[in-house]
C-alpha cells in the first residue's frame, strides 16, 4: 500500500474529553491511512470511540493530540476558514439524517451549494441531477416529515454529494433503517463509490454493513485501533479478541467442556470442499461443531468453524495431522479467545 499517498491520514490522533468526572480518553494513538477510491469501514461496539473518530476527520471534534492530513494538508494548522474549506470536500451523512425540517427536498439538496454561494439556477440543476441519481426525482417538493427513513437518507446522500466532495463520511448511516432499506442504501453508497470515485468512510457497529460494501476495515475497541486489514483478511482470520467477537457474535459463550478446540478457516478455496465430512471419514472420529458461519464477502465464501475434538489423545492427534496434511487453514483456540 506504500505506492500511493493516502487521501486521509490519521497520525497519532488522540481525543480527550474533560468532564466533571475527570478526563475521558475517547481516542488514543490512532494511526490510519485511507486511500482514494476505497470504501473504508470503521467498526466497533458502542462507546468504542468510532463516532468521535469520524468527527475528528472533518474537525467537528478537534483532536487533542496528533493530526489529520487530508490530501497532504495538515488540518492542525488550518484556521476556521481553512477547516470550512476542507469540510466542503467531505460530505457527511448521519444516523438521524439531519435534514432541515422547514425546507423541502430540493431546497435541502441546494443547501450546501447555497452556503458556498453557487448561483441558484446552477444549484437547482445540480440538485435535480442528484435527486434523480438517488431515485427521488419525483419528490422534490416534499418535506422531510413526509418521507420514510430510507427516503430521508437518500436526500441526505444527495445533499452530501452536492458540492462534489472527494470523501463521504457515513456515521451509522443505516442504523436507524430496516434491513431491506439498509441493503438498498448500502447498494447506493457502493454505486456512488464506483461511479463517482468518491472515497467512502463507513462507521458502523454492524458486521453486515462491513461485509456488504467495505474494501478494508479497521476495528476500534476501547479508544484504540485493534486491527486493520482487508475485509476478507479480517473476516477469515481476526487476530484481536474484539475482532473475533464482532465476527462471531455472542454465540460462542457456551460451555465448551475441556477438550481441545480448533478453528477452521474457510478462505474461499476450502469452502467448496466438504471439509468436515472428509475429515470425519478420513479420521473416523466424531467431532462436535461449536460454531460455524459462512458469509459472502465480495463474491468469495469466507467463514469459520469451531470444532471440538475428541478427548482421546490419539484421535485428537489424527485430526490435527489430517488438517495439516490437507492444507486446511486452522488454529488451536482456547475458551479465553472468545
Amino acid at each position: 500500500m506504500e505506492q500511493k499517498e493516502p487521501i486521509i491520514r490519521l497520525d497519532h490522533l488522540g481525543k480527550e474529553f474533560h468532564t466533571v468526572n475527570g478526563t475521558v480518553k475517547a481516542l488514543e494513538d490512532i494511526n490510519l491511512d485511507i486511500y482514494a477510491g476505497e470504501i473504508f469501514g470503521i467498526i466497533g461496539l458502542s462507546g468504542a470511540g468510532k463516532s468521535t473518530l469520524v468527527r475528528c476527520i472533518n474537525y467537528l471534534e478537534v483532536p487533542t493530540a496528533g493530526d489529520v492530513v487530508f490530501e497532504g494538508i495538515s488540518m492542525k494548522g488550518l484556521d476556521r476558514a481553512g477547516i470550512n474549506q476542507v469540510r466542503r470536500s467531505m460530505g457527511m451523512i448521519f444516523q438521524q439524517f439531519n435534514l432541515l425540517s422547514q425546507r423541502n427536498v430540493l431546497k435541502n439538496v441546494c443547501f450546501p451549494m447555497e452556503l458556498q454561494k453557487t448561483p441558484k439556477d446552477q444549484a437547482v440543476k445540480r440538485a435535480r441531477e442528484l435527486l434523480d441519481m438517488v431515485g427521488l426525482a419525483d419528490r422534490e417538493k416534499a418535506y422531510p416529515a413526509q418521507l420514510s427513513g430510507g427516503q430521508k437518507q437518500r436526500v441526505a446522500i444527495a445533499r452530501a454529494l452536492a458540492t462534489n466532495p472527494k470523501v463521504l463520511l457515513c456515521d451509522e448511516a443505516t442504523s436507524a433503517l430496516d434491513p431491506n432499506t439498509t441493503k438498498a442504501i448500502l447498494q447506493l453508497l457502493k454505486e456512488i463509490n464506483r461511479k463517482l470515485g468518491v472515497t467512502v468512510i463507513v462507521i458502523t457497529h454492524e458486521m453486515g454493513v462491513i461485509e456488504a460494501i467495505c474494501d478494508r476495515v479497521a476495528i476500534i475497541d476501547k479508544s484504540h485501533i485493534a486491527e486493520v486489514g482487508s475485509v476478507s483478511e479480517i473476516f477469515s482470520g481476526p487476530k484481536s479478541a474484539i475482532g473475533r467477537q464482532l465476527i462471531m457474535g455472542d454465540t460462542v459463550h457456551a460451555d465448551f467442556g475441556d477438550s481441545k478446540l480448533v478453528r477452521i478457516i474457510f478462505d474461499g478455496r476450502a469452502s467448496n470442499e466438504p471439509v468436515l465430512a472428509n475429515l470425519i471419514l478420513a479420521c473416523k472420529v466424531p467431532v462436535n461443531i461449536m460454531y460455524a458461519a459462512t458469509k459472502d464477502v465480495n463474491g468469495t465464501a469466507l467463514g469459520q468453524m469451531i470444532i471440538q475434538l475428541p478427548k482421546d489423545e490419539g484421535e485428537e492427534k489424527r485430526v490435527m495431522n489430517y488438517l495439516a496434511t490437507a492444507g486446511i487453514p486452522h488454529e488451536e483456540v482456547t475458551r479465553d479467545d472468545f
Binding site: 470550512n84 466542503r88 467531505m90 457527511m92 448521519f94 450546501p112 452556503l115
Partner: peptide, 15 residues
C-alpha cells in the same frame, strides 16, 4: 433546534 441539523450544517462548512 435539533443539534444534529446544526452539526450537519457545520459538516458542510457553514460559518
Amino acid at each position: 433546534v435539533d443539534a444534529g441539523v446544526i452539526e450537519a450544517a457545520k459538516s458542510m462548512g457553514a460559518g
